[in-house]
Design a protein around this nucleic acid. Sequence first.
DNA 1: AATAACTTGCACATCAGTGTGCAGTTTCTT
DNA 2: AAGAAACTGCACACTGATGTGCAAGTTATT
Lengths: 207, 207
Amino acid sequence: MTTTAPPRRPRKDAEANRAGILRAAATTLAVDPSASIDQIARAAGLTRRALYGHFDDRQALLGELIAAGAQRFNAIAASVDDPHPPLALARLTASLWTAAAHVQVAAALALDEARVEQTATALAPLRRTLAAIVRAGQDDGSLRTDMAAPTLARLIEETARGIVTRVDAASPVATSLAVRAVLSIAGLSWREGDALVSAHPELLGES
Amino acid sequence: MTTTAPPRRPRKDAEANRAGILRAAATTLAVDPSASIDQIARAAGLTRRALYGHFDDRQALLGELIAAGAQRFNAIAASVDDPHPPLALARLTASLWTAAAHVQVAAALALDEARVEQTATALAPLRRTLAAIVRAGQDDGSLRTDMAAPTLARLIEETARGIVTRVDAASPVATSLAVRAVLSIAGLSWREGDALVSAHPELLGES
DNA sequence: AATAACTTGCACATCAGTGTGCAGTTTCTT
DNA sequence: AAGAAACTGCACACTGATGTGCAAGTTATT
């Protein structure tokens, strides 16, 4: 009979390369959402051919990217909780911002129309958190009530997305900008938003 | 000598078809910013080959689209003038919205990264108007002063763009939504924005 | 009715991107 | 040191989109 083939552990550098591809994909796609596989592979220091050794096809790569990013985002959303809805909203925005700051999932957010469905389901927990904050804020009168809760939630989300993708996150005041914009859309006057941000410096000053 | 060829006027249906292509391009590109020439031609009831009889190439078509849309937008911006900056901003938003409502230049706004430069220069007059409103509003204290004027102008523009492209313009409350969102970003509390909109029903109720 | 303008339909060349196959080389594991 | 795992480099087939050429048909103008 044939001797059983001695099984061997997969090489550890392979997994490192795989992670490198994901990182490279995030940074590259953040700049150009329709970057080619070749671009991504080179950015990771590999060949296009090698990339296909780690991911079956484009879909698989983007799928993992989205899943990983969404998971981080959802975890952040789950950890945010404050009795005052505007403050909860501010914390959520600031946390998400620093997480997405430079790259990471800015890609996943700016991805093509083809994957909106996937991102939608992946970010469902985050959306639920946001919806809860909005509802609580409308109930206690701390957020605007001139539009329906789902509409407002959508508006907040689009505003945040727009700032993430269209403003350079490098700027040190970017976080402050994002938080202020979201609070404004949520109904606060700019002075109220300003007061809130000033009263909670921890919003902006974390690593 | 050869008899001079009798010149003939171009057929008038040709110009109609040309206009039809531009219309079709606007509506089609509004849905899918990367629609193919073939899609556009079919939407216009023509063949891809016939389209190339009217436009040299893709650039030419998109160029005219952008130019035409920008011209309309700039004309609207020039006609808006109100001593109270928030009201001027509201008027500007409402007017632009109804103009872009269904299609038209939503395409030009959502166009690829390749043409941002062209759209930027084409929309320069509109940007100047917005900048003037922002400056006046910061001077008389009716708009937020917690960020620099150019930043605020940019923020307002991105907010408006986001709403135009990501919210379905068909909804009857869409105009109201757009105006309220812009006023909020500009610094007003939602009650102030609500009061402004309520006090000026002409903002929403025009054809 | 003649004719030029316009359109169609097809073929063709080109380009960029995707995904696969395979031989040869480098690099990690045992 | 052996052997497998991984990477390179190249070739290839395929797809979708762009832009052009040309013959034949249709439609507006005169």
